[in-house]
Design a protein around this nucleic acid. Structure first.
Length: 739
RNA sequence: GGGCGCGUAGCUCAGUGGGAGAGCGCUUGCUUCACACGCAAGAGGUCGCAGGUUCAAGACCUGCCGCGCCCACCA
């Protein structure tokens, strides 16, 4: 045994990191059975830059549990993944290399990105070439991520690494999709969906957030057939050309006589019916509202349930398109005026159109008073800058609404840590209002393993998709050819065309348990791991990652994907604001580890309970550093006397050990309840008492003659207590404990 | 509008019906043979407010105030 003269934390991470790797101490032993295994569904961090100090905290939380379960004798399956599938990566690669993905181009296996000049316009390349570039760039980030996680001391088995754009993820994602399609749970439909006009893609309900915005209420006059008028209030007058009806509540006496009659829209003079529907709120506006295709999701409900026609004026780029009145579906009592008004709006953004139509209405005497300013909530894509529009387009959906009740039951079945986080899941599931739209009009993602036959005129038969053969996955329908067709038939009448879209990134990451456990690629391994024990994650993605993963497992395996969910909070800066790069208060994780040591940073992370947002406190990290150093020094004292210890007989020694035993019990109980912070708190309090009181009390006795019984008892007690304390602290301070 | 969480020392936070606590920071003293990244002593609190239950409330119940978050059909 060699005890250093002056113990230090410096260099411990590198030394023990290498040793752990060489010895394979965290390598998963797949010969173990399900009962002997503790399986973790690690969150794959998004690869589009660098990791945040918040990630350091939450990944440490997972590692605390992993190390505890391993020390309790379970074989821990602790993989890692990189989430490099998605819009964030796509944008980064585009900007970095000056390229643009064009899925219609064929793969160029001799493509050299160096040949892409510094031209102004991005160079179009095939999807496969684009993915290869994504792989290349994300590879760099992923190396940095791994270095950070290794230094932090995450006891991950790095041989179980996956990427969400990798071949295995694409295969499993496509396989799962095909199974859903075969059961008609995944279906394609032309339907109104939420649409981001900047990214030009459909988005799902889960990616939508409300933001408060300034708006203006306009009171607008519609003409009745009998010569009277009716006034409605709207914040979106630019949708008047898309208006298909007025709606009032069935029991609203004020409008009862109007229901069933027709009115004319202002400016466009389009005859529309007045209808009744219980969703119309007599308290709002003037009590009667216009229904447009489509201003919001209520419009969609009204349109569907009342069987109204569709008159769309907003294009996918968010501008008002040109429309010709007088044609079928665009009838008008004054075609000339309608087209004149339409020309005023065509080509402008909704904001421009809103101002312009207000002027037109005013000039026509159809605006009552002036628009009044109001703050109201508007739906945005979570990464978007402009309000979402509702656009009718062909998309793939997964049936969700019909499973609401069983998904609620799954939420009850899952053990949430802390328990109250289950309420967020519940309120989300209770309020689901649409099937999951899983197609995205983007490029860097998992393609749909689907083609469509072309009819004699070259039109795709979307109602007869050709599903890929499962044995050939993953496939890219832009390159691969469906069974029974020749490559030359691509795009030709009577031939086929590949589905151009990619899946929602959550459609793949909702399968992380299946990907990590190699569903159907390795049935033996899967049976040993699934359902898993733990999903660790932060609270902001309960309605996405957690919800979708529960959903997929329920559909595919009729079970929960895991039994426990451990929900971490966020890291806030000391002013209690959310840390953000723009405020310049971000500390890079690697710098933290280098200046304070990994154990010190882990200590700070371990003091933050699950579910609670934690303040970033450098002071707390320093406290952790002192604790780690104290462990080294106390251990040095206990180990420096090399004479053999004896039997523990002294009442003081026995009393100390009795107290330590109850600390072990408490810490174990806390850890089993995922309350690592309490385990640390109890252990730490005991440890400082042990150092300051017990050690000082027995020091003199320990220094007596080696043969002295009291001295032997003291030394034996010190050895035993230090051994136990090191193990109690090992999940939090693995480096100091290992040293 | 519905729901969840949180208000305890200057700061960060424990607190499981009976004694108001820890760490940091602050003050004072100490080169004691594991550790000055240490040790010892000390100052510092109407436990958000108001009722109620109880022999006893920081804790349990009700209402209110404040902060944060989640959800909701945006006329």
């Amino acid at each position: 045994m060699r005890v250093p003269d002056k113990p230090s934390l410096d260099g411990l991470e590198l030394r023990w990191g290498e040793r752990w790797e060489a010895d394979g101490v965290y390598r998963f032993d797949r010969s173990k059975t399900r009962e002997q295994i503790y399986a973790i569904d690690s969150p794959p961090p998004t690869v589009s830059g660098s990791l945040h100090v918040g990630s350091v905290m939450s990944y440490t939380h997972t590692d605390l549990v992993a190390r505890f379960q391993r020390m309790r004798g379970l074989e821990v399956f602790y993989p890692m993944g990189w989430d490099d599938n998605g819009l964030a990566t796509e944008r980064r690669v585009q900007n970095f290399f000056g390229v643009r993905c064009d899925p219609s181009l064929p793969y160029d296996d001799g493509f050299d990105v160096a040949s892409v000049g510094g031209g102004d316009d991005p160079v179009g390349i095939s999807r496969r070439n684009f993915i290869e570039l994504c792989d290349r760039l994300t590879g760099e980030d992923e190396k940095a991520f791994e270095a950070l996680f290794r230094r932090l001391g995450l006891s991950v088995d790095w041989t179980h690494l996956y990427t969400t754009i990798g071949e295995r993820s694409r295969r499993i994602s496509q396989r799962s999709f095909l199974r859903l399609a075969q059961r008609d749970l995944a279906y394609t439909a032309e339907a109104p969906t939420m649409w981001d006009v900047d990214f030009r893609t459909a988005v799902a309900q889960a990616e939508i957030e409300d933001r408060e915005r300034e708006g203006r209420y306009h009171v607008v006059v519609f003409d009745r057939e009998d010569g009277g008028t009716v006034e409605i209030e709207t914040s979106r007058p630019e949708l008047i050309p898309a208006c298909v009806a007025l709606v009032a509540h069935p029991s609203d006496a004020r409008f009862a006589s109007l229901v069933g009659s027709e009115v004319l829209t202002p400016l466009f003079r389009v005859p529309i019916p007045v209808v009744a529907h219980p969703l119309a709120d007599p308290e709002k506006g003037t009590g009667i509202a216009m229904i447009c295709t489509f201003g919001d999701v209520t419009d969609v409900t009204w349109w569907r349930e009342l069987g109204l026609p569709m008159r769309v004026v907003i294009e996918k780029d968010g501008r008002i398109g040109s429309r010709e009145f007088g044609k079928p579906g665009w009838e008008s009592r004054d075609v000339r005026a309608a087209n004149a008004a339409m020309r005023e709006l065509s080509g402008s953004t909704v904001n421009q159109a809103r101002r312009r139509i207000a002027e037109l209405l005013r000039d026509a005497g159809k605006l009552v008073g002036e628009p009044t300013a109001v703050r109201h909530t508007v739906k945005f894509y979570e990464n978007g800058d402009r309000p979402l529009e509702v656009v009718a387009s062909r998309q793939w959906f997964v049936s969700t609404l019909e499973f609401r009740d069983r998904l609620l039951a799954r939420g009850e079945e899952l053990a949430w840590h802390p328990a109250y986080m289950g309420a967020r899941y519940r309120s989300w599931v209770e309020n689901l209002n649409a099937d999951w739209c899983i197609s995205r009009q983007r490029f860097f993602g998992v393609p749909f393993p689907v083609w469509y036959p072309l009819d004699a005129d070259g039109r795709p038969a979307y109602d007869r998709p050709i599903l890929a053969d499962e044995s050939h996955l993953p496939i890219d329908p832009q390159e691969d050819v469906p069974p029974g067709y020749a490559p030359e038939q691509r795009g030709e009448p009577g031939g086929f065309v590949g589905d151009p879209d990619v899946m929602d990134t959550w459609a793949t990451s909702s399968l992380t348990p299946q990907i990590a456990a190699r569903w159907e690629d390795d049935p033996d391994l899967f049976a040993r791991l699934f359902p898993m024990d733990l999903r660790p994650q932060a609270h902001d993605i309960i309605r996405t990652w957690l919800f979708y993963t529960v959903f997929r497992a329920d559909l595919q395996h009729d079970s929960l994907p895991w039994t426990n969910a451990a929900i971490s909070g966020f890291v806030l800066d000391p002013d209690r604001k959310k840390m953000s790069k723009s405020k310049g208060n971000v500390v890079t994780p690697m710098e933290l580890l280098e200046s304070h040591s990994a154990d010190a940073v882990r200590y700070w992370a371990a003091s933050a309970r699950l579910g609670v947002d934690a303040a970033f406190e450098e002071q707390q990290i320093k406290v952790g550093r002192r604790l780690a150093i104290k462990v080294l020094n106390a251990s040095k004292f206990a180990l420096s006397n090399e004479t053999p210890p004896g039997e523990i007989l002294e009442p003081l020694d026995l009393g100390m050990l009795r107290a330590l035993r109850s600390v072990v019990d408490e810490a174990t109980e806390a850890f089993e309840a995922y309350d690592y912070a309490r385990a640390l708190e109890r252990t730490e309090a005991f440890f400082w008492w042990f150092c300051d009181d017990y050690v000082e009390l027995v020091k003199g006795r320990a220094y007596r003659s080696p043969a002295d019984e009291g001295s032997r008892s003291a030394r034996a007690a010190l050895h035993l207590a230090l051994d136990v304390l090191q193990r109690l602290l090992a999940p939090v301070l693995p480096y100091a404990a290992e040293e």
